[in-house]
Design a protein around this nucleic acid. Structure first.
Lengths: 337, 337
DNA sequence: CTAAATTTCGAGAACGTTCTCGAAAAAAAT
DNA sequence: ATTTTTTTCGAGAACGTTCTCGAAATTTAG
């Protein structure tokens, strides 16, 4: 493949590369007519700018790296779409990688992206990540990096978060107000800040209403549908059937709901359900699943915006934390009849 | 941000940049001891290779571009994951873009990726794309590009396809064998090759069983759940209720199913359903949706492999078409009781 | 009509690598 | 000890851009 370069154009027009370069970069010190001529012949010759070279001299790639734990739920794709929307219009390309919830792959991704000279990073940590030294160094070095959803308090960088505590509390209170007494919480992966926050919301809602939560009411697992199924099976086996379940995500709730239904339990009469991070599936399932809706697009957009801010302001950027709010969508799965 | 370069290392070690470069590139003409020394001090100094520069001289980026129409269904994410698996282990980075089913964005994506000097392209065309001149030129120029799922016969490049005809036929026959007579087909976007193939399967299944299909039994729409809902509403309005519906994807089927259920129709007793491109939702819905399962990961893997072949063999690459097979998963939504 | 100001341009360095070529150093062969 | 071979290295071009600096051309002012 023979690329046409700026030199070829210069030669053809009997001018210098500087002039041609000027034409493309909207520089003021060039005659409008020559500029147009350059642009025209460039088009005719099928010229395409070589980003590598440009980036090399400008020391920026106009690439943004995104690292997410997974792709299978619609949550992260939606966040990514939000970010892309902002970044794309500013001329940035987005490199997306996934860590598969694995710390080593996550680190490999980050480093690989750094090698590609990304101008900044948007990252949501894997559930396995408990060592944040690398990120601390990165942040300290001034590299533009924004964390979203899954992060650590200790990291002194900009963050876009969801108010997990508040909405977990609302969700739980909703169940309590419906009159449910024996409410279980499926907290997913225990160690994540977001899980802890949701659990805290769950606990405080009980406290507020002077209800006591027994340890066995909070159950740890993974975040997938199968995890929900397994928990439900075990509960049925032990014949410890909750009134209601507040799950840390829709997948867990749906998995469990299916098992309960299969075993003859009625939803919400026997067991009520409320999920989190509203997914499309939630509205399809029978009965439709109540859930807390997170502003996925908004998260992506805000994170992207912060990143652009950081890139533009350089060293003297002051990190901020944005906490977004959601919405409690009550559906049939949690309404006492 | 001050990057440490190969020059810095050379200076510190009192050697030449050539030697340092050799150390990193596993060249034979370097002493093992100096190599180790270079590698060690490079690590100490926190050296990170500049991809831009490397790519510039080597004229390849080790980046692969992927263009997909959308992100919201799990189909494309899964394909991407398959591709990533193959590409990642060969040291390639993946740049993902989405066209939002819009031709102009698609083209912009492709060009932007070309500017980033991607070594190759994996693409599934938007539903809007009817002008393939650009791709024809690209293919003719020898640029490595592999089409998957959505493509045009006319393009002379490697393709990874699904045997839509065959499995549409199987799906339809399954319904016919169950005794359904008045079967409708929701074909989605009419113009896509894959839609045409699926419709052809639908028609031929009827022909084979000596059944006649009236034009009104084949309905065109978009590919989203809302489209399915709208069709169902219209059918109910006109009181033309099919025995069974074969939808070109799960979303259409689920959308329609929900509306029928809401209007008091029983599934599968009053209306039976079968979808296509099995989605997670299909197994959650009540009753579980029969569907044709596509080997999503496999599609991504195969496409990536073809692309690597193409990149490696260069000009004398001979395009191939791989047609993959799927699986018919029969569930309650299509079983006559 | 000349001087000053402004516009427009070209030469050439720089970005951080890889790669070719030939030279120096070391090892092996005579 | 000398020649030949092999190993190891350094100099410098190249990749395709942008950018700085100063010079040429043009316009404006006096």
């Amino acid at each position: 493949m023979k690329y046409i370069t700026i030199k070829d154009i210069a030669k053809k027009l009997n001018t210098s590369v500087s002039t041609v370069s000027r034409a493309f970069n909207d520089k003021s010190d060039i005659n409008v007519k020559t500029k147009e001529l350059v642009l025209k012949t460039a088009k005719e010759m099928g010229y395409r700018q070589n980003r590598m070279a440009k980036n090399l001299v400008q020391k920026r790639s106009f690439n943004i790296g995104i690292v997410v734990p997974e792709f299978v739920n619609s949550f992260f794709p939606e966040v990514i779409m939000g970010a892309q929307e902002i970044l794309f219009e500013k001329g940035y390309q987005v490199l997306i990688t996934q860590s598969n919830e694995c710390y080593t792959t996550e680190l490999k991704n980050v480093q690989s992206l750094e090698n590609s000279m990304v101008d900044g990073l948007l990252i949501s940590l894997s559930s396995e990540t408990d060592n944040i030294d690398y990120y601390q160094d990165l942040v300290k070095s001034g590299f533009p990096i924004i964390f979203f959803n899954r992060t650590y308090k200790e990291i002194n960088a900009s963050k876009v978060l969801f108010n997990d505590y508040k909405w977990a509390m609302f969700a739980t209170e909703h169940l309590i107000r419906q009159g449910y007494k024996n409410i279980y919480h499926f907290q997913g992966i225990k160690t994540l800040t977001l899980s802890r926050e949701r659990r805290r919301g769950f606990m405080d809602a009980h406290r507020k209403h002077k209800l006591i939560v027994e340890p066995h009411q909070v159950i740890t697992s993974g975040f997938f549908m199968e995890d929900g199924e397994n928990i439900a099976k075990k509960l049925i086996e032990n014949n410890t059937i909750p009134d209601a379940i507040f799950a840390a995500n829709d997948q867990l709730a749906i998995g469990a709901m299916n098992i309960f239904k299969k075993n003859g339990y009625k939803v919400p009469k026997d067991v009520a359900f409320i999920g989190f991070s509203e997914s499309k599936m939630g509205s399809i399932v029978e009965p439709p699943l109540s859930s807390v809706k997170q502003p996925t697009f908004e998260i992506g957009k805000k994170a992207a915006q912060l990143l652009l801010d950081h890139i533009e302001s350089g060293k003297n950027y002051i990190p901020q934390t944005i906490v977004l709010d959601g919405q409690l969508n009550i559906r049939a799965s949690s309404q006492k009849i």
